[in-house]
Computed example of a mutant assay.
Amino acid sequence: MFNIPAITWTLTAVLLLSGSYHLLQAMKSRQLTDQVNKSLHALMHLLMAAMLWNLAPSTMLAQIAVLTGAALWFIIQAVARPEFKTLCADGHGRLKCVYHSLTMAGAALMIAMMGHMSTAGYITAPSDGMAGMGGMTMSHNHHPMAAPIETTAGVSMDHSPALAILLTAAFTAASIIFIILLLRARPTKNTHHPRSDHRLSLRAEHALEALGAAVMALMFTTMTP
């Protein structure tokens, strides 16, 4: 799928625009926790865009470590005591932090799976020189490795296709849920009312989450058999 330049450039543009939006929101926020959270989202989108073009493959382990740390950070927020108001204090906030932890972990796993596929010979660079997911082709003449690739966490990647299918389904479902929430959060008639501004912000957030989940699902689809 990603040997089609139009798809690669479209996904790259979506990821870079989403990352820029999160970075802008981080700069506008006055709360430190929110600044960190938005910055982590911006970084995740940047790393995913770089993965499409196989940029900086030598830093793969560092990317996985950063994204794994980000996933743990969101889990910590999700289980934090209600007294910590700057973290995920209410039920809605906790659920959102759990989902954001899933997205960070999914991005880290995607990078690890891409590294495994490249090492195992499932991905070969096409003749025009384009590499990575943006120019990958599936090789049918590869030789299986004698032993499975182990990630830095010590998890075998033998079952990566099944895991990719599971995550594709999960992010597809998430995208549908966010689209439903987007449609339900209709703006009020009074555009100058504070509640109207909140609803517009909420709609933008739901739209961004739906788009991000769809991109994750699409990228995991390329890793299924």
Score class of each variant (00 low, 15 high):
I123E: 04
R203M: 12
P187N: 00
A125C: 10
S118Q: 15
T168S: 10
T172E: 01
K38W: 14
S29N: 04
G106T: 12
H193A: 11
F74L: 02
E209T: 02
M136N: 08
K85E: 15
L182K: 04
L47G: 00
M157L: 15
L183D: 02
G69D: 04
T124R: 13
H22M: 09
D34Q: 11
L183P: 03
L166Y: 01
H143R: 11
L47R: 07
G212P: 02
S101F: 05
E205R: 12
A26Y: 04
L15H: 05
P148N: 05
G132P: 01
V155L: 12
L15S: 00
G91W: 14
I177K: 09
I4D: 11
A131I: 13
A78H: 03
W53F: 13
M136V: 06
A71S: 15
D128A: 02
F220G: 01
Q63M: 03
F178Q: 11
L67F: 01
L181A: 02
N54T: 00
T137Y: 09
K85G: 00
T103S: 13
K189I: 03
R184T: 11
A70M: 07
A173W: 06
A204H: 12
E150Q: 15
H142I: 06
D128H: 05
A62P: 00
I177F: 13
I75L: 15
V155D: 08
V98Q: 13
G135R: 07
A105P: 08
R94I: 05
L167C: 07
T68Y: 09
A153I: 01
M223F: 14
N3C: 07
H45A: 10
L109P: 04
A173Y: 05
E205P: 04
M219T: 14
S139A: 13
E205W: 10
F178N: 04
R81A: 14
A50E: 08
T8L: 02
D197K: 15
H142Y: 13
T124N: 09
H22V: 07
R186F: 01
A210M: 07
L167P: 06
R81P: 02
G19T: 05
D158F: 04
A6D: 11
R195W: 02
S196R: 00
A71Q: 11
H45F: 05
I75D: 14
I149N: 09
L40S: 09
H206Q: 09
S101K: 05
T188L: 12
A78Q: 01
I75T: 13
G134L: 03
F171V: 03
H116A: 15
Y99A: 15
A108W: 08
R203N: 08
I180H: 03
M219E: 03
T222Y: 06
L52S: 03
L17S: 10
A42L: 01
N141M: 01
R186S: 05
L23W: 04
D34C: 01
S58M: 07
I180K: 08
